[in-house]
């Protein structure tokens, strides 16, 4: 009886989130699709032809998985950070706070919204990539689980960012100054084996590197790092950030005075 009520509450939250980003699809779905299409045109057709193959794959095929994952990362994050910050800013998060829903249901509701947008954009970008190349599929299970785990992880990041954000500026600082550099330096465009030793070591401290390599392994079957390591890292980060997010929501940080 109670669990059914929570299920309905969860469905309501998810439906609301999906409606939100679908309603403003020109701002949410279209831009990443256009940006990645530009990458495909430039690196795939214009200059990509002149670049040497990496690990036996054409340059465009090598970078497509990373570009897909990058769009998943930024969209999962953006969805939760703007949705949760908006609900805090306009106070309609109170609709959920007064209702008999435990914090974990609210949290999972917002995260699912981020996952839904991350995976939708990821799927759209994958489809567009097929116009420029035809990507092999080495292991569907790895592709799907990495996409899912990555979108959960960055939805959590977006949530925590939104909890601490005091203004609209605060919800763009982390994506611009932390997320984007880590993603671009996370081995989307190159194999870290091509880097000088010192940069190679520094790169290994970037968690996004592991996700991108594992995701690429799902398509191409090649990776700079071990698959297990990637799963361990993403699961560890998810557990820690989930527990922390739940704590923030329970005490009402930034929500209740």
């Amino acid at each position: 009886m109670v669990s059914r009520a929570y299920w309905v509450a969860f469905k309501t939250l998810l439906r609301k989130e999906i409606r939100r980003f679908s309603r403003i699809w020109v701002q949410t779905i279209l831009p990443p699709v256009i940006t990645t299409a530009l990458y495909f045109i430039i690196f795939g057709n214009l200059i990509g032809r002149q670049l040497p193959a990496i690990e036996g794959y054409r340059y465009i095929d090598y970078i497509v998985p990373g570009l897909i994952l990058m769009s998943i990362i930024s969209n999962a994050y953006a969805n939760v950070v703007s949705s949760f910050y908006g609900s805090k800013f306009q106070h309609y998060v109170e609709e959920q706070l007064i209702a008999p829903i435990p914090s974990w249901v609210i949290l999972i509701g917002y995260l699912s919204g981020g996952v839904a947008r991350g995976l939708s954009v990821g799927a759209a970008v994958t489809l567009v990539s097929q116009v420029f190349t035809s990507l092999p599929l080495h292991n569907l299970w790895v592709v799907f689980s990495m996409a899912l785990l990555t979108s959960i992880l960055f939805s959590l990041g977006g949530f925590i960012n939104a909890v601490y954000a005091q203004s609209f500026d605060d919800i763009t600082i982390i994506p611009t100054f932390v997320l984007t550099p880590l993603t671009y330096l996370g081995g989307i465009f190159y194999s870290i084996d091509m880097l000088p030793e010192s940069w190679r070591c520094i790169s290994l401290g970037n968690p996004i590197l592991y996700l991108i390599n594992a995701f690429r392994y799902g398509f191409l079957g090649v990776s700079d790092i071990g698959l297990l390591q990637a799963y361990a890292i993403v699961l560890l980060f998810i557990s820690v950030l989930f527990a922390y997010s739940l704590y923030l929501l329970k005490v009402g940080r930034g929500l209740k005075s």
Binding site: A5, V8, K11, T12, R15, K16, Q96, P100
Partner: peptide, 14 residues
């Protein structure tokens, strides 16, 4: 209408 229906959803009603 969506605002009212969603609120019902938070109470487990649909």
């Amino acid at each position: 209408e969506e605002i009212v229906i969603n609120q019902a959803g938070y109470y487990g009603l649909e």
